[in-house]
Nucleic acid binder design. Structure first.
Lengths: 168, 168
DNA sequence: ATTATCTTTCATTATTTTTTGAAAATTCAG
DNA sequence: CTGAATTTTCAAAAAATAATGAAAGATAAT
């Protein structure tokens, strides 16, 4: 397989995987394109390479910036904006985890905490089972939350912990 | 909040969260409904409670069975099929992980392995960067794969490991 | 073997999500 | 300040996804 073909394959597949994970196909493709681009790209570059409209590029790029996965790059003497993706794949992973945790896991735990306070007879079997189920899911959610925090922190402390290992 | 209202809220929110994770809203809602139902339900029960069509229930129920999250229940002397959800939330979690791993992570790693073998000059900077990026992502994918396996195994060994702790 | 009950399928319809592209807004050089 | 270059917005169109419901297919009781 040639390089150009491989890149194309990577971009298209990344888009398909994204879709399965509730991520807009185009957003995933733009991210993939920037991941395998040596240089920073303009909106026009992206439009051309993915055959998509200006508005589409603009919206998805801003989303990616909101996810902390893409940065604007200022090129001296150029009017246009350039965009580049974080290339450290470990940072990419922790950033995605950080964001999904904030946007989805945290609100879910909050909701479950509310639902646990259902009114009614604590001896009512229906009430009991519901509260128990909600409580268990909340507990699992909190465990996941903690585990993911450790994961994220592991990254932040990577340098420190490497140093520590050298000293010990 | 009353029980009925809380259940409704749970089902509707579960559907919304599902959507964010690339899971069909209705499928998530049926799963939620079964999770908080004391008794097994028929297709008609589900149709009524969620106000959806028979065909919709049927397809999504079969999907949920395919995911290993819902079981058919045979009730003696009854013609109709009943359905019930696995209530052990830890098992639910590991089952979802097991399936998504199989359906998504494994194929992704396979693809990346292929893309690593791009033809061309190994000294070409473009080729180098692409191969490196793909390799890094594959490595991360494999790490995730291992970690998730541990997670799944932890469950299977839960009883064993509890026993071990007691003996020690 | 016939009938009644229940399940499954799938072409059609409806809904949701994504994309487009032109207009508006912004930015900056001169 | 003016105007050209660039970015952003958003109503409308297109595409993708999901839901409906009637017909066909099973299944089991009589």
């Amino acid at each position: 397989m040639k390089l150009a073909e491989a890149k194309q394959q990577f971009i298209s597949s990344w888009g398909a995987f994204g879709t399965q994970w509730g991520i807009n196909r185009t957003m995933a493709q733009i991210h993939a394109l920037l991941l395998v681009s040596t240089e920073a790209l303009t909106q026009d570059d992206i439009m051309e390479q993915l055959s998509i409209s200006r508005g589409n590029v603009n919206m998805n790029i801003r989303d990616l910036i909101g996810w902390g996965l893409v940065d604007r790059v200022i090129v001296a003497g150029e009017r246009k904006e350039y965009f580049t993706a974080e290339k450290d794949i470990w940072k990419v992973a922790t950033q995605i985890i950080r964001e999904r945790k904030k946007r989805e896991l945290d609100p879910m735990i909050k909701l479950l905490a509310q639902l646990e306070n259902v009114e009614g007879d604590k001896k009512d079997k229906e009430v009991q089972q519901f509260t128990e189920m909600v409580g268990k899911i909340k507990k699992l959610g909190k465990q996941a939350d903690k585990t993911l925090d450790l994961f994220i922190k592991a990254d932040e402390n990577w340098f420190t912990s490497s140093l520590l290992k050298m000293i010990k």
